[in-house]
Computed example of a mutant assay.
Amino acid sequence: MVVEFWIFCAIATAVVAAVRGGHSLLWLLIGCVLGPIGLLAAILKPSLKSGEPIVAAERQAELGELRKPARDPDSISAKRKGE
């Protein structure tokens, strides 16, 4: 009974996060680890899909910054060409 509830919490966490603009696989793992606390966190986190264009643009820019690679591949190839 407890295992089924925990699985339900993990799936519900992923669905809620996906609807609100989050990464569903990440939130599925959070739901697996934290259970109902993860579901509560997914519900309370700010949505990336805001109705206000300015807020939505700011949140998408923050998300874009997180997705950038640690190193810029162009600068690496430029150094190799200049050597």
Rank of each mutant, 00 (worst) to 15 (best):
G21T: 00
F8N: 11
P69I: 03
A78E: 15
A18M: 08
G82H: 15
C32T: 11
P36G: 14
P46W: 01
H23G: 05
V16H: 03
L29Q: 03
A10K: 00
L25Y: 05
P46F: 04
I54Y: 13
R80T: 12
I54E: 15
R67H: 05
C32S: 12
L26Q: 10
F5D: 12
R71N: 14
K49S: 11
V2L: 15
G22P: 03
A42V: 04
F8M: 11
S50G: 15
I11R: 01
D72P: 04
A61S: 10
W6N: 14
A18V: 06
L25V: 08
A57L: 04
L39Q: 00
I7E: 11
D72E: 08
R20V: 06
L39R: 02
E52R: 11
W6K: 15
K81Q: 11
I37Q: 09
L44I: 11
R59G: 02
D72C: 08
A42C: 05
F8D: 09
S50L: 13
L63S: 07
D74V: 10
P36L: 14
A14C: 00
A56N: 05
K68E: 06
C32G: 12
A14N: 00
Q60I: 10
G51Y: 07
K45W: 13
C9N: 08
E52T: 09
C32I: 12
K49I: 13
V33P: 05
R71T: 14
L39H: 01
L29I: 06
E83W: 13
I30M: 04
G51H: 10
L63I: 02
S77W: 15
P73M: 01
E65Y: 10
V55S: 05
L26G: 12
A18Y: 07
D72F: 04
